[in-house]
């Protein structure tokens, strides 16, 4: 159950890309943090919740052929680094894409998908993945 509770706390990040923004320098972070490594002590108490833009473009990608069991049904698939419109890099899975047509700079969008499930009777884990934004 402890993993269920931990995941539950991460829901705002996993569903809605809730990250953080430093109140001093304006830098955006994902996943969220409560300390800005650039501004250090000055940022204490000034880092706010910030919803990351769901749209971005592919900064880097790699095609995965050997997957963890949760992705057996989706392989081969791509993992991507996406540069969002807030200029933050987010790693995630790219789905619904033609693998031979993926390019750096391709526009993508974060959607909610099933990530995994704890067997047939456990909880279903939902979170963001990226799809081509056509």
């Amino acid at each position: 159950m402890s993993s269920v509770a931990r995941e539950w706390r991460e829901i705002p990040g996993r569903y809605n890309l809730e990250g953080s923004k430093c109140g001093c320098c304006g830098k955006v972070y994902f996943p969220k943090r409560d300390f800005c490594p650039k501004c250090r002590r000055d940022s204490i108490g000034k880092v706010e919740k910030h919803k990351i833009d769901r749209n971005g473009e592919i900064f880097s990608f790699s095609v995965v052929h050997e997957s963890p069991a949760c992705n057996d049904f989706l392989k081969p698939y791509a993992v991507v680094f996406v540069k969002t419109k807030d200029d933050v890099l987010i790693a995630g899975q790219l789905v619904d894409a033609d693998l031979d047509k993926i390019e750096i700079g391709m526009p993508v969008r974060a959607v909610l998908r099933k990530l995994d499930a704890d067997g047939a009777s456990g909880v279903i884990h939902y979170g963001f993945k990226f799809v081509p934004d056509v």
Partner: peptide, 16 residues
């Protein structure tokens, strides 16, 4: 549906 799609993900995309 895709292998990672269900009513939750379809309803969410429509609602967004």
């Amino acid at each position: 549906p895709g292998c990672d799609e269900d009513v939750v993900t379809i309803a969410t995309e429509a609602a967004r």
